[in-house]
């Protein structure tokens, strides 16, 4: 995986005077998340990788909506816009279309991004505007003090669902892929290295990058991702997606994913029936495969896939917008406002 990171094309290069450190990324605002919140780790990793992107900090913009995660921009010493519930993706679209050379990041949550902001999220993804979306998924509403969210598991008992929730949860990766995402990845607040790697991959991807980050809410949904993060159990419950590598998992690397027709299944590599050669090999450029992997999400005993599901090239909206403007100027000439005002059927009154 580290090999992949090195292949990342650098989009813009800072002059030496514009270099900065992770510490420079910290704003003067006191961070006010609850003790033990997964957001702290995500903030730290984001601050850590920013200097490595080669983008001067005045070219970076963080836009957020409403929710715990959406306080994020206040703590980043870049340009920031803490907006209104669900609309960060729409605001970020306007920012990026106006200044396509900015590095634009959206920080959102499962409620902000998929309930109230679901519409804007899917349209950003299909347009493929080069914005990086970090969706902090804690499967709960934190800021409003503990109601179920669109990613809460069915039957969840919360303040607003004392008898258990009736809603079937969204699978954020499947939603993103269904909306036409060109980059979709899942990572974990507790895995610093993987999180950093994923953030860098997102930054490098030209087009909308969608990252679902499993984030622990220590107050209202503590431990909900323990099975994917705790040392004793995680290896049997997650599978790391690694481009070009067979899908192997388990504490002893003794299990793998085999395709039975179109259906993935867990097979043992120990009992002699299957070898590594029988396993599904990850190809993050394959859209069909990405859907299959995404669908492994709520289907135990299949392990939860973590990593880059899809990374593919498609022209970005803003590039095509600029091209269209250039083409129009080439065809019709630079717009002359005085000629426009005097165009059409005109007449003179003496």
């Amino acid at each position: 995986m580290s090999a992949l990171i090195q292949e990342i094309p650098v989009k813009s290069v800072a002059s030496p005077s514009q270099t900065f450190t992770a510490k420079d990324m910290q704003s003067d605002q006191e961070v006010r998340w609850c003790p033990g919140c997964g957001d702290y780790s995500i903030l730290a990793q984001a601050q850590r990788i920013m200097p490595d992107l080669g983008i001067p900090k005045h070219k970076i913009v963080f836009v957020s909506g409403i929710g715990c995660s959406s306080r994020f921009p206040y703590y980043m010493n870049t340009y920031g816009f803490h907006s209104i519930h669900g609309r960060a993706t729409a605001i970020a679209s306007g920012v990026k279309l106006t200044q396509p050379d900015l590095s634009v990041w959206v920080v959102t949550g499962d409620g902000d991004g998929m309930s109230i902001g679901g519409n804007h999220l899917i349209h950003l993804l299909r347009r493929n505007i080069d914005v990086n979306v970090l969706l902090f998924n804690n499967q709960i509403y934190g800021l409003t003090k503990g109601q179920y969210s669109p990613t809460s598991e069915k039957g969840k008992v919360t303040k607003s669902t004392p008898f258990g929730s009736l809603d079937y949860p969204f699978n954020p990766i499947a939603l993103a892929l269904g909306a036409g995402a060109t980059f979709a990845a899942r990572t974990l607040d507790r895995d610093q290295k993987h999180l950093q790697m994923t953030l860098k991959r997102a930054a490098a991807h030209v087009g909308t990058s969608f990252i679902e980050i499993y984030q622990n809410c220590s107050v209202f949904n503590d431990g909900t991702f323990e099975q994917f993060t705790d040392k004793g159990v995680k290896d049997d419950n997650i599978i790391l997606l690694d481009h070009g590598k067979p899908l192997i998992f388990g504490r002893e690397k003794d299990k793998g994913i085999h395709m039975n027709g179109f259906t993935p299944e867990v097979v043992s590599l120990k009992d002699g029936h299957y070898s590594v050669n029988d396993l599904l090999v990850h190809n993050e450029n394959d859209t069909t495969l990405s859907f299959i992997l995404a669908d492994m999400t709520y289907h135990p005993p299949l392990p939860r896939p973590i990593g880059v599901f899809l990374s593919m090239d498609r022209p970005t909206y803003e590039t095509e917008m600029v091209h269209q403007i250039e083409a129009s100027k080439k065809k019709l000439g630079d717009g002359d406002i005085k000629s426009l005002l005097n165009s059409g059927d005109t007449w003179t009154i003496q």
Binding site: V61, V63, F81, S83, I84, R87, A90, I91, A92, S93, G94, V95, K96, L97, T98, Q99, L102, N119, H120, H123, M321, Q324, I325, S328, K329, K331, L332, G333, D334, G335, I337, L340
Partner: peptide
């Protein structure tokens, strides 16, 4: 009037229309 550099964005809804415009003004 693209040749005047005008950027028009047919948004997914009214809210995205104004939100994208606010983002554009910020930028």
């Amino acid at each position: 009037h693209k040749n005047f550099g005008v950027k028009t964005f047919q948004a997914e809804d009214e809210i995205a229309g104004i939100s994208s415009a606010i983002g554009a003004s910020f930028a």
